[in-house]
Simulated scan of single mutants.
Amino acid sequence: MRAPVFAQIVRAQDATPALRRDLRDCWTAVINAGGAVIPMGCPLPPVPSPEVEPALDEIVRGLAPQRGRILLATVDGALAGWVLLRREPHPLVAHCGTVNHLQTHVRFRGMAVGAALMRRLPEIARDEMGMERLRLTARAGLGLEDFYRRAGWTEVGRWPGALRVAPGDDRDEILMSLAL
């Protein structure tokens, strides 16, 4: 596999209809493959593509160079993965960013696309947005905490049983941090 090529979407008008369709289709495929990126208001899998559109529209509306960006990874012109980086708006935490929705399209799983996105993201947060720290949450039970630890993140806490994946299947929400 060729190394991913990175691009950023920093304004709503840069999210073309074709890109929105690619993001939606990636998100739907990831959810339906068991990924931990189910948006608020979206049913549990299986999920039809239109169900993620309201959440995607909200993300796109929040894009602005210093407030929120989508980092894309493409391979041979195809969307291989993406992640959202947002600056916290409150002045007490404006030096921090939040990472959401890290996704690798199922066609590109096992090819280190997610790891490549997570290596590139801190550079953007620090060098282009002036952030000093990043945070994210992950769902326990999928090995995600190990993935993020390998990328340099530190677990700083857990919210026990905060995520109900299915009746009788409650998972911890893992809180993670990365100093830039």
Rank of each mutant, 00 (worst) to 15 (best):
residue 2 R to V: 14
residue 3 A to H: 05
residue 3 A to L: 07
residue 5 V to C: 09
residue 6 F to I: 07
residue 9 I to R: 05
residue 11 R to M: 06
residue 12 A to S: 13
residue 12 A to G: 12
residue 15 A to H: 11
residue 16 T to N: 05
residue 16 T to W: 11
residue 19 L to Y: 08
residue 19 L to S: 09
residue 20 R to F: 11
residue 20 R to L: 15
residue 22 D to I: 00
residue 24 R to E: 14
residue 24 R to Y: 07
residue 24 R to N: 14
residue 25 D to N: 02
residue 26 C to H: 03
residue 28 T to Q: 06
residue 28 T to G: 08
residue 29 A to M: 09
residue 31 I to P: 00
residue 32 N to K: 10
residue 33 A to Y: 04
residue 34 G to I: 08
residue 36 A to W: 03
residue 39 P to R: 07
residue 39 P to E: 03
residue 40 M to I: 15
residue 41 G to K: 03
residue 41 G to F: 09
residue 41 G to I: 09
residue 43 P to A: 13
residue 44 L to A: 15
residue 44 L to D: 13
residue 45 P to G: 11
residue 46 P to G: 12
residue 47 V to C: 09
residue 49 S to P: 15
residue 49 S to M: 11
residue 50 P to M: 06
residue 50 P to K: 07
residue 52 V to N: 06
residue 52 V to A: 07
residue 53 E to R: 15
residue 55 A to L: 03
residue 60 V to Q: 12
residue 60 V to C: 15
residue 60 V to I: 15
residue 62 G to T: 01
residue 63 L to K: 05
residue 63 L to F: 03
residue 64 A to Y: 07
residue 67 R to A: 10
residue 68 G to V: 06
residue 69 R to T: 10
residue 69 R to F: 02
residue 75 V to R: 10
residue 75 V to S: 08
residue 76 D to T: 10
residue 77 G to Q: 08
residue 77 G to M: 12
residue 77 G to Y: 12
residue 81 G to D: 14
residue 84 L to A: 06
residue 84 L to Q: 11
residue 84 L to V: 10
residue 85 L to W: 03
residue 86 R to V: 11
residue 88 E to F: 15
residue 91 P to M: 06
residue 91 P to R: 12
residue 93 V to Y: 15
residue 94 A to P: 05
residue 98 T to G: 12
residue 99 V to M: 09
residue 99 V to F: 08
residue 100 N to P: 01
residue 102 L to S: 00
residue 103 Q to P: 09
residue 103 Q to K: 13
residue 107 R to V: 07
residue 108 F to N: 11
residue 109 R to K: 09
residue 112 A to P: 03
residue 113 V to R: 04
residue 113 V to L: 05
residue 114 G to I: 00
residue 115 A to F: 03
residue 116 A to L: 02
residue 116 A to W: 00
residue 118 M to Q: 10
residue 120 R to Y: 02
residue 121 L to V: 05
residue 126 R to K: 10
residue 128 E to H: 11
residue 129 M to R: 14
residue 130 G to C: 07
residue 131 M to W: 05
residue 131 M to K: 02
residue 131 M to I: 04
residue 133 R to P: 06
residue 133 R to Y: 10
residue 133 R to M: 15
residue 133 R to H: 12
residue 134 L to H: 02
residue 136 L to M: 04
residue 139 R to G: 08
residue 139 R to W: 11
residue 144 L to E: 01
residue 147 F to P: 02
residue 149 R to M: 07
residue 150 R to F: 04
residue 154 T to V: 06
residue 156 V to E: 06
residue 157 G to E: 05
residue 157 G to D: 08
residue 158 R to H: 05
residue 159 W to E: 15
residue 159 W to P: 00
residue 160 P to E: 02
residue 163 L to C: 13
residue 167 P to W: 00
residue 169 D to Y: 10
residue 171 R to Y: 05
residue 171 R to Q: 13
residue 172 D to V: 00
residue 175 L to D: 01
residue 175 L to C: 01
residue 177 S to F: 00
residue 179 A to Q: 14
residue 180 L to A: 02
